[in-house]
Every structure is written in C-alpha cells, then in structure tokens.
C-alpha cells in the first residue's frame, strides 16, 4: 500500500468535509438548530457555477465569485422570509422546516437540470506527483481553501469586533443583547457568510468530483457527524472532526488488522484481516459513537463565558 497516497487521500477527504463543516458548525451555534438545508445550498451554488461557467461561458473564477455572493444573498432571503419567524419556536420546528426546504431545493434542482451529473469546463489531468502520491490542482485548491477558511474564521472570531459579537451571541443571546450587541445584525451576517461559504465548499467539491442533485443528500449525514464530533460552534472542532473522519475512512480501509487480530503473534488466525469496503460508511458512525461516549459534547467543548 502506498502510504503517502493514503495520507494525501485522507487530507483531501478531510478538507472536503471540513469546507462545509466549518460553516455549518458556526451557523449551528448561532442559529441554534440543525439546518439540513445548509448542504443543499452547497449544491445550489455548485449548479449556479455550472450555469455561469458552462451554459453562459463565463470565466471560472468569476463564476465562483458571483455564485458565492448570490448564495450569501439567498441565505439572507431564507432568514428574512422563512427562518426569522422561528426565533421563539425552539430548535425542532426550524429543523423540520429546513428539512422541507432541503427537499424542495434538491428536487427543484433535479427538475431544472435533470438527474444526470454535470461537470465544469475543466480538463481533468492526472494528478501532480508528490512523494509518490497523486494530487490534482482542484484538490490543492480545496486544501488551500480549507486552511485559509480555518485561519480566516479563527481571525474573524478572535480579533474582530463582529467576531466577538458572534461569540457572545453564540454563548447567550439574551446576555449579548443586554450588552447592546445587535444580535439581529449578527444573525444576518452568519446567514450570509454561512450560506456563501457552503456554496464555495459545494463548488470545490463539485469541481473535484462532479455536480449532481444528490451531492448534498449524500454528504449531509457525514457532515453533521463531523460537526458534532468536533463540538458545535468550534472552528477547530470542525477541523479536528473532519481530520478524524477523513483519516479514519482512508486508513481504516488501508490497514491490515492481522497483527491486532492475532494479538501481535500470540495467535495465528491468518495474515490478512482487512476491513471490507462495504463497512467504510460504518467508520464514520463508529467514530461518532466512540467519541461522543467519551466526550458527550464533542472534542472541543463550547466555551460558555
């Protein structure tokens, strides 16, 4: 087994999950409900880039920029017309509303663009070879974006006034309001950044793989797993969660468990014990069970201050 390739694969998987998980974790902590439509915004963003880039023939970078901004605005509209009215309805009602919204967006996309996948105007090439492993340009961009997002969100939350306001709102809305923080403004900003950033994630994943209507549907559960493993509201948590899931998925499959099963030489039950690929999705769920049983609020505990 080419261990460098497994390492690179793990990093790419982690970055792809992390891209969407960071935004979801932040919005989750401030909006206080599980937004199932978050991932569908990612798919909508990816399809808008297809519209601009392929159908209308725009420049790829420009398409990404416009699509991200449009989705940010869509986020504002969703808040204004749908989710604002759930301010006092607890967390379950908006969650089910977001489920309805997710169904609507997903199938609306299929009604417009059809069930077949689409790809961007981009020539797929064999990856660049680094230390014997292949990594492609889109994958490098995904890594760069994920790292910059991590740094960017960290700086935003720690070193800016609005970031302080966001953290305060996440910790306690009433207290934040009492400290004359305009929580409405904070929530609008969170919708804009969160949805726009989800779109960017969807676009990059679509660029690296393909865009189809079920892109989000197949990602939504792993991404929620990542967010809750890491701890809601923590940027580092989302990063750590996606690293755990990404590495576990790739190394879990690559690893030969024979030494472990044979108790390091005590038994001789055979020399190959691999995890069947059919159990790959189980790795994520095992990680959730193990980690939450040990740390019930995720790896990074939310600071309540």
């Amino acid at each position: 087994m080419n261990i460098v390739q497994v390492l690179v694969n793990s990093l790419i998987t982690s970055a792809e999950l992390g891209l969407i998980a960071i935004g979801l974790s932040m919005t989750f902590s401030i909006l206080r409900f599980a937004n199932f439509a978050h991932v569908e915004s990612a798919v909508l963003g990816a399809y808008l880039v297809y519209l601009f880039n392929v159908t209308l023939g725009w420049n790829f970078a420009l398409s990404i920029l416009v699509s991200t901004l449009i989705l940010g605005t869509v986020g504002l509209a969703l808040h204004r017309f749908i989710f604002r009215r759930f301010a006092n309805s607890g967390d379950i009602t908006p969650m089910i509303a977001s489920l309805g919204l997710a169904i609507t967006i997903r199938h609306g996309i299929q009604a417009i663009w059809g069930p077949q996948h689409v790809v961007y105007d981009y020539e797929v090439l064999p990856g660049n070879k680094i230390f014997g492993a292949f990594i492609t340009d889109p994958q490098i961009w995904i890594l760069i974006t994920a790292v910059s997002a991590m740094v960017g969100f960290h700086c935003l939350l720690q070193y800016t006034r609005i970031g302080t306001a966001m953290r305060a709102t996440a910790a306690n809305v009433d207290l934040a309001q009492a400290c004359s923080i305009d929580t409405q403004k904070v929530i609008l900003l969170v919708w804009f950044i969160g949805t726009g950033f989800a779109a960017l994630g969807g676009i990059l994943i679509g660029w690296d793989t393909q865009v189809d209507p079920y892109l989000g549907f197949n990602l939504v559960i792993p991404i929620f797993c990542v967010v809750l493993i890491g701890g809601v509201g923590s940027v580092y948590g989302a990063i750590i969660g996606s690293l755990i899931v990404g590495f576990a998925q790739n190394f879990g499959l690559a690893f030969n468990y024979a030494p472990l099963i044979n108790l390091f030489g005590l038994l001789d039950l055979g020399d190959r014990f691999d995890l069947p690929a059919a159990y790959k999705p189980a790795i994520t769920y095992m990680a959730v069970v193990l980690i939450l049983l040990i740390r019930p609020t995720g790896i990074i505990r939310k600071e309540v201050s």
Binding site: L228, A282, Y285, V288, P296
Partner: peptide
Amino acid sequence: LTVKNMGGTYWGILSLSMAELIRLVFLN
C-alpha cells in the same frame, strides 16, 4: 444507556450512528 447527560442534537447524531451501524450489519 448512551444518553447520560448528552445534549439533544449530540445524542440525536449518536442515535443515528447506532441505527446506521445496525443497518450496515444487516446490509453487509
């Protein structure tokens, strides 16, 4: 037995994971 003092959504995703693990055993 896994609930303990776990917060709502945390246990939600934990219960989903347990359900999916059982389904994957039946599937595979």
